[in-house]
Structures are given as C-alpha cells and as structure tokens.
Simulated scan of single mutants.
Amino acid sequence: MEKGCYVKDIAPASDVGGVFAVSQAAQGKARNGPYWRLTLTDASGGVEAKIWHPLSADFADIAPGSLVWAEGRAELFREQVQLVVERMRFLSPAEQAALDEAAFLPSSPYPLDGMLDELLALCREEFHHGPWRKLVLDFFADEGLRADFRICPAAKGIHHAYAGGLLEHTLSVFKLCRSLADLYEELDRQALLAGALFHDMGKIREFSGGLANDYTDEGRLLGHIMLGVAMLEPFLARSGLSEALQMHLKHLILSHHGELEYGAVRLPQTAEALTLHYADNLDAKLAQCRGLFAQQGGGPGWTPWQSSLGRTLCRIERTPEKKSPEPRKKAMKRECLSLLKV
C-alpha cells in the first residue's frame, strides 16, 4: 500500500490523500452537531484535522495510534494549515503490516547513536568525583534504561516531541550547562551536570512512545519529575554520594520547571537549580522556534500564533557571514589539480 501524501507537503487550498497515524483525537460540539478534532502525523510532522457532522457520526471511537487513510481539503484556520476530512477509514491489519512504521514516527534530525555516544563521552570526561561517576555509569550500564532513553520523546507536543527528542534535549542542556559552568566558576559543576543529565529522565516512564505517544497511567498520576527521582533511588543508594549531594540532585530535578504553576515541586533554591531551570527553558523555547521557522521554509517572515509562547515570532533577515579564506595549502592543491586537467 502506498503512503500517499506526507504532512510536510500539505499546502492550503490543496487536495490531500494519504495514510496517517492518529496521535490525538477528541470530540467536540458545534452548532450543526458533534465533530472530531484530530492530529494526524507521519515522519514529516503533524497537522490538525476536523471531521464535521454528519461524517463524524460514522466514528464511534478513534483511538490514538490508529493508522487511517484520510482524504480531504487543506485550508488555513487562524494562520495554520488544517485538513477538513471528507473521507476516512481505518487500515486493515494486512494493510498495516505492509507499511513501514518508520514512515509514521517523527524522529530527531540527528543520528541517535551519535548523540548517545557524544553524551556518554562527555559524562566520562566531566564526572571525576567517584560517587558521581559511579551513579552515572551504573545508570547507563542498564541496557533497558539506555535503550528507552535513546528513543524516548521529550514531550507530547510542545518541544522535541519525536523519537530521540529526550536524548537530543538532554545533550543540548548538558552542553549548555557545561558552558555556563565554565563562565560561572562558583557553580558546583558536577552537581549541575548531573542535574542536566537526569532532569527529564522520568519521561521514559511518563510517555508510551510509538505511534500514539500518549501518557502512561503513572505518567498521568505521578508525572516525570516524581518518576525521575524514584528511578534514581536504587542507583543513588549504591553510589556512595553524600546525603547532601543526593539531596541537591533531587532538588535539581524537583525544581527544574522553575515555578510551581508550571509543575515544579519546589522553587529553585540553589544557584545550580536556577541555572538548570534557565538552561532547560532556553533549549525548549529555541526548539519551538526551530519548529515554527521550519514550517515557514526559508527566508524571513512571521510565524502563526504559538499558544505555548503566547505570541507570534518574526524571523529576521540574517547578518551576512564573511566566508573564511580557503587555506593556502588546500588552494594550492586545487590549483595544481586544475593545471593537470588542462
């Protein structure tokens, strides 16, 4: 079975037909009857879709993770592309088996193995205190935890919401905290980096991953912050870390959302906790910017309204970069080769 149209190719005022994964589905009520609001996704991204009445009445339930063939018309709604579904059906087991699931799983643009190798190499370089080093290396020696961390998304929809997103985000926050620790020598470098490494680790139990990428039961009831602290407990017990350093790491995890109304269990109350919060927030915000600018294509302009940021964003023309002069040795070699061709 052919995949058909990809999300990235959907343009306003165009006809659409293709296989998509349903990542979110919710019912609503309009003046002319009930309707379905869906998010249809594939490896290239996601698009909001509406099934209006009376077609909506044909679907008693639409489960996240379902694969569907959907046809309809794309239009602009509040400056964002939206698909009005005119026909839709669920794929049969045989049709699903004939498809490559990778075509429906958005993934990090960076190689997962390369990012994991880089992160572990940085950990071996940075953690010199024996108990910190034992904690980190013992955790990543667990093949199940390492494999789950490698592919886990960092979110359901706001930032890094794709396979490998948690690894990508963690690596970025870790490297950002390294730079900040270089600049601010009063920071406890190894405690800060341990917080950067483990701050979102509970997400490997908060999210299901896969086509649905939904919250697990423990994810809904406990959340990734509490889950992350619980996951570390047995490793902390064997690490030999002092009680004060164990408490500090837990505080870094519990407070990294910064404000109680944004999910922090405690406000950041150490210099390292403040640093981690701002590094985490900066990487998440810039990831949202990248996603919005990518939807625009190249060139300057304004993005659609982004509710999670509470604003639209403007992509300004970039300052021209001066090209680095070609190394003399390389230039001479190129000149010699050109003479040989004459």
Results as ranks from 00 to 15, higher is better:
residue 93 P to Q: 03
residue 92 S to Q: 06
residue 53 H to N: 14
residue 86 E to V: 02
residue 95 E to K: 09
residue 85 V to R: 07
residue 85 V to H: 09
residue 103 A to V: 04
residue 79 E to Y: 00
residue 52 W to S: 14
residue 95 E to Y: 11
residue 91 L to V: 14
residue 84 V to F: 04
residue 121 A to M: 02
residue 94 A to M: 03
residue 123 C to F: 00
residue 82 Q to I: 13
residue 66 S to R: 05
residue 130 G to M: 09
residue 58 D to K: 02
residue 65 G to C: 07
residue 69 W to G: 01
residue 77 F to M: 10
residue 110 Y to Q: 11
residue 72 G to P: 13
residue 92 S to A: 14
residue 78 R to C: 08
residue 103 A to R: 12
residue 124 R to I: 14
residue 73 R to Q: 14
residue 69 W to Y: 11
residue 49 A to T: 04
residue 83 L to K: 03
residue 77 F to P: 02
residue 98 A to V: 07
residue 63 A to R: 15
residue 64 P to H: 08
residue 104 F to V: 10
residue 82 Q to Y: 05
residue 90 F to N: 08
residue 128 H to W: 12
residue 72 G to W: 05
residue 66 S to A: 13
residue 118 E to T: 15
residue 78 R to G: 05
residue 66 S to K: 12
residue 88 M to H: 10
residue 129 H to S: 03
residue 116 L to E: 12
residue 85 V to E: 05
residue 70 A to S: 15
residue 101 E to I: 15
residue 62 I to H: 01
residue 63 A to P: 08
residue 127 F to H: 04
residue 100 D to T: 09
residue 132 W to S: 08
residue 113 D to H: 14
residue 96 Q to D: 06
residue 107 S to Y: 06
residue 62 I to Q: 01
residue 124 R to E: 13
residue 104 F to Y: 14
residue 118 E to H: 13
residue 88 M to W: 06
residue 86 E to P: 00
residue 96 Q to A: 15
residue 88 M to T: 01
residue 130 G to P: 11
residue 116 L to R: 13
residue 89 R to A: 10
residue 93 P to E: 05
residue 132 W to Q: 09
residue 60 A to E: 09
residue 109 P to N: 13
residue 124 R to M: 00
residue 111 P to F: 11
residue 88 M to P: 03
residue 93 P to W: 00
residue 79 E to L: 09
residue 100 D to M: 06
residue 111 P to N: 03
residue 63 A to F: 12
residue 60 A to V: 01
residue 91 L to D: 00
residue 70 A to E: 05
residue 55 L to H: 03
residue 97 A to N: 05
residue 132 W to L: 05
residue 104 F to W: 07
residue 109 P to V: 11
residue 85 V to L: 12
residue 66 S to T: 13
residue 53 H to D: 08
residue 110 Y to F: 11
residue 62 I to K: 01
residue 86 E to G: 14
residue 58 D to F: 07
residue 67 L to P: 02
residue 74 A to C: 01
residue 128 H to S: 14
residue 95 E to A: 13
residue 56 S to P: 04
residue 73 R to G: 10
residue 114 G to R: 03
residue 59 F to W: 01
residue 121 A to T: 15
residue 127 F to L: 09
residue 56 S to H: 04
residue 88 M to N: 02
residue 78 R to T: 11
residue 126 E to K: 07
residue 105 L to G: 04
residue 90 F to S: 13
residue 104 F to D: 11
residue 95 E to Q: 15
residue 53 H to Q: 04
residue 80 Q to E: 10
residue 90 F to V: 10
residue 129 H to I: 08
residue 57 A to M: 06
residue 85 V to S: 02
residue 76 L to Y: 06
residue 61 D to E: 15
residue 93 P to S: 05
residue 112 L to F: 11
residue 60 A to G: 09
residue 99 L to S: 06
residue 92 S to Y: 03
residue 107 S to N: 09
residue 86 E to M: 05
residue 52 W to I: 01
residue 132 W to F: 15
residue 111 P to I: 07
residue 80 Q to T: 03
residue 80 Q to P: 00
residue 130 G to S: 08
residue 90 F to W: 06
residue 51 I to P: 00
residue 130 G to D: 08
residue 78 R to F: 07
residue 84 V to Y: 10
residue 65 G to I: 07
residue 118 E to Y: 01
residue 79 E to W: 05
residue 75 E to S: 15
residue 93 P to R: 02
